[in-house]
Computed example of a mutant assay.
Amino acid sequence: MENEKKLFTFTEIKQKLVNYCVYQDRCHSEVEQKMREFVLIPEAKEEILLYLLKENYLNEERFTRSYIRGKFYMKQWGKAKIKIHLKQKGITEKLISKCFDEIDDDDYTNIIRKVYENYFSKLKGLQLYQRKSKTVKYLLSRGFEYENILQVIDN
């Protein structure tokens, strides 16, 4: 009984998906996932997708740009981790590369430095090289590139 889909009219479903897209930028795969909650024939899904695109509720580039800004400036993720997550959402490599101009190079270096210093200062009771090594591994896990990490450490 739990996984029984709710029944709505076509207009109600369309409005629910408009609201879903207005609340926060979405990508195609998220909207398609949301559509699976409703009982829809393929033609209806297609019509709703076209409507969302035509009215600019669904815009892949806008989604990608806001996703990059959010994950970098709020969660302090590196470009590698952001790229992986966008690919999982079905965003093309070309669009991802195009939208990375949302991240300012100086901001990128400053965030790496900030995360590095913050994490490094929390490590106690270890040799200097162990603290450095652990911090580099941590930054790599946050999606920052090895070259950029070394550049920050060396300066």
Rank of each mutant, 00 (worst) to 15 (best):
M1C: 07
N3F: 10
K6S: 11
L7E: 12
L7T: 05
L7V: 11
L7M: 08
F8Q: 05
F10M: 02
T11H: 12
I13Y: 08
K14L: 12
Q15F: 13
K16G: 03
K16Y: 15
K16A: 02
Y20F: 15
C21F: 06
C21M: 07
V22A: 10
V22D: 11
Y23C: 08
Y23Q: 13
Q24H: 15
Q24N: 11
D25C: 13
C27W: 00
S29P: 09
V31F: 00
V31E: 00
V31M: 03
Q33A: 15
K34Y: 09
K34D: 01
K34G: 06
E37T: 09
E37R: 12
F38N: 01
I41E: 08
P42W: 10
P42L: 01
E43Q: 13
A44W: 09
A44P: 01
A44Q: 14
K45F: 05
E47D: 08
I48E: 03
I48A: 01
I48V: 01
Y51V: 02
Y51A: 01
L53Q: 13
L53C: 13
E55R: 15
E55A: 10
N56H: 14
Y57S: 07
Y57Q: 06
E61M: 01
E61V: 02
R62Q: 11
R62K: 15
F63W: 07
T64K: 00
R65S: 02
S66A: 05
S66V: 06
S66Y: 04
S66C: 06
I68W: 00
G70T: 05
G70S: 11
F72K: 01
M74I: 13
K75E: 12
K75H: 13
W77C: 06
G78M: 01
G78C: 05
A80C: 12
A80W: 11
A80G: 09
K81W: 05
I82R: 09
I82T: 10
I84R: 15
H85M: 14
H85W: 13
K87A: 12
Q88G: 15
K89L: 12
K89G: 06
K89W: 00
G90K: 12
G90D: 14
I91Y: 11
T92K: 15
T92I: 09
T92R: 15
E93T: 12
K94L: 13
K94F: 14
L95A: 03
L95C: 06
L95E: 04
I96F: 09
S97A: 12
K98T: 05
K98R: 12
F100Q: 00
I103F: 03
D105N: 10
T109V: 02
N110H: 13
N110M: 09
I112T: 03
R113N: 12
K114I: 01
K114V: 06
N118I: 07
K124L: 10
K124M: 11
Q127F: 13
L128I: 14
L128C: 10
Q130V: 09
K134R: 15
V136Q: 10
Y138L: 02
Y138Q: 09
L139I: 08
L139Q: 05
L140N: 04
L140G: 05
S141T: 10
G143I: 00
G143S: 06
E147W: 13
N148V: 02
Q151T: 10
Q151W: 09
V152R: 01
V152T: 03
I153V: 02
I153P: 04
I153F: 04
I153T: 01
D154C: 10
N155Q: 08
